[in-house]
Structure formats: C-alpha cells, structure tokens
C-alpha cells in the first residue's frame, strides 16, 4: 500500500538530512505506528508522502502510484489529518466538508451518508453550520478527520492524532483507525504516545535522526532485542539511546 525506497530529504540550507535513506513498506489492512523523538523526521516523512514536500532522492509509492509521477492519483488514495489541522476558519463546517467532497469527487448520496455518520459519531451535528473559527481544537480535529474519511481512502495518514484530544475523543479516534483497518484499508500514523502505539498498531517503525532504526511487530522488536517482557517504551528508549551513542 505504501512503499518508501531509499528516501532522503535535506532542507535547503540545513547541514543534516531530515530523512536519510529511508526504506519502509506498509501493507494493506494494517495499522502502522511511526515513532520517534522530536525532530527525528516523522513529520518530514509524512509531508513527503502526502505531497507537501518533495524528496531529494528515492521513490514513494502509494497504492501503486509514484507520488512524483502520479501525484494526483496518489493523493486520491490518501486521507490526511495533520498534527495541527489549520482549517479555513471563515468557512462553516458543512462548507468545508462539501468542498472536500467536491475535490475528491464524492457523490451526493455517499457524502450525505458519510457526513451524517461521522458527525453523529463525533457529536458535531449541532455545530456543523457554524464557522470553524468557533470550534475548539478537538472539534477541529474531528472535522478534519471527517473530511479525511469522506472519500473512504485506501491509506489514512495521521500526524500526531491524539494531541489535544479529550479521553473520549481519543478513544473514538482509536476506534475509527481500527475500523478503517478492519475494512482492509491502511492506517499510518505518527505518535509520541507509546502506550497507544503498543495497543493499537499491528507494526511500528522507529525513526531517529532521519534513519529507520527498527521496524516490525512488537514481538519482532522484542525478539530482536532478546527482551521478551519489554514494553514498547523500554524498547524505544534503548534503541534511541543506542543510536545516539553510535552517532556520537
């Protein structure tokens, strides 16, 4: 579903690579957690996948479409929610959703059905006619999520989806991700909350200083470290600390 081959990115003027030689494959129907410390390259990677940045080197394939050669087809397969979903504040919620549906070519019947479904799930029915500027952070997150799911994307990408959400909303988000994966779709998300990753993800990848330092199921990571009882947090801390020492 998602394949990154030898992907590198260095920001103009920077001395270090933000992402360096990244190889990664995410399969159909799985929830993949993308973990790493601050500044590790998670958001840069996500931005390259969704088309907000161009890689300097390597290829990214989404649902069989090369993001540089077929960016429109690739984008059509993606639903994206950024870490801070800056939505057009001067639009009402329903205007925003209708625009998204127009952009993805979602039919009237489908959009009405899905909008009604997600708004009911998130409790936004009473607010959707208001300007987005009156929404709280959590409400904006939910609206962004609804917009990202309107076209039932093959690949659902979320950057730090749990930030700023109340426990109920966070629970809903997790359920939605699981439901989406159970339908055979793919979920790729970055997070700092390792407990969430541990419970929710089928596989995780850990990125540090722009390089992927570990990838696999939790069990595979434990086996590779020969630490059967380790939590993901423990593994994460050990792996990143080792990487720090190596790079020094």
């Amino acid at each position: 579903m998602l394949k990154l081959v030898n992907v590198s990115k260095k920001y103009s003027g920077a001395t270090n690579f933000a992402v360096h030689g990244l190889d990664l494959e995410v399969r159909h129907g799985e929830i993949f957690g993308f973990l790493g410390p601050n500044g590790a390259g998670k958001t840069t990677t996500i931005k390259m996948i969704v088309g907000l940045l161009q890689q300097d080197q390597g290829t990214i394939t989404v649902n069989g479409f090369d993001t540089r050669r077929n960016p429109i087809e690739a984008k059509r397969s993606i639903g994206f929610v950024p870490d801070n979903p800056n939505l057009y504040e001067k639009l009402t919620g329903i205007e925003y959703l209708n625009f998204v549906a127009d952009a993805y070519g979602v039919s009237v019947q489908e959009r009405q059905k899905r909008i009604a479904h997600y708004l009911a799930m998130f409790g936004l029915e009473g607010a959707v006619g208001d300007l987005i500027q009156s929404f709280s952070h959590g409400m904006q997150q939910k609206l962004a999520l609804t917009g990202a799911l309107l076209h039932d994307p093959e690949l659902f990408i979320l950057d730090e989806p749990m930030v700023g959400l109340d426990p109920k909303s966070a629970h809903l988000f997790k359920e939605l991700m699981r439901d989406h994966a159970d339908k055979g779709r793919t979920v790729f998300f970055s997070t700092h909350v390792l407990e969430v990753a541990e419970r929710l993800c089928d596989r995780v990848g850990i990125i540090h200083n722009g390089r992927l330092i570990a990838c696999g199921t939790l069990q595979e990571l434990r086996e590779s470290r020969k630490a059967q009882d380790s939590t993901l947090e423990r593994l994460f801390l050990e792996l990143t600390a080792e990487e720090e020492e190596t790079s020094e």
Binding site: T92, L97, N98, A103, V108, R111, A116, V128, G129, D130
Partner: peptide
C-alpha cells in the same frame, strides 16, 4: 460564541458542485 444546535439544519445542504465553481 456558538449557539448550540444552530448548525443542525445546514446539514441538508450537502450537494455536489462542479469542481471549478466549488
């Protein structure tokens, strides 16, 4: 401020537009 429930009626407006006009 938002008036609770004020936006509910607007949901029925979900309609398709030509992309250019949208």
């Amino acid at each position: 401020g938002r008036r609770v429930g004020a936006g509910r009626a607007k949901l029925a407006r979900g309609k398709e537009r030509p992309l250019l006009w949208s």
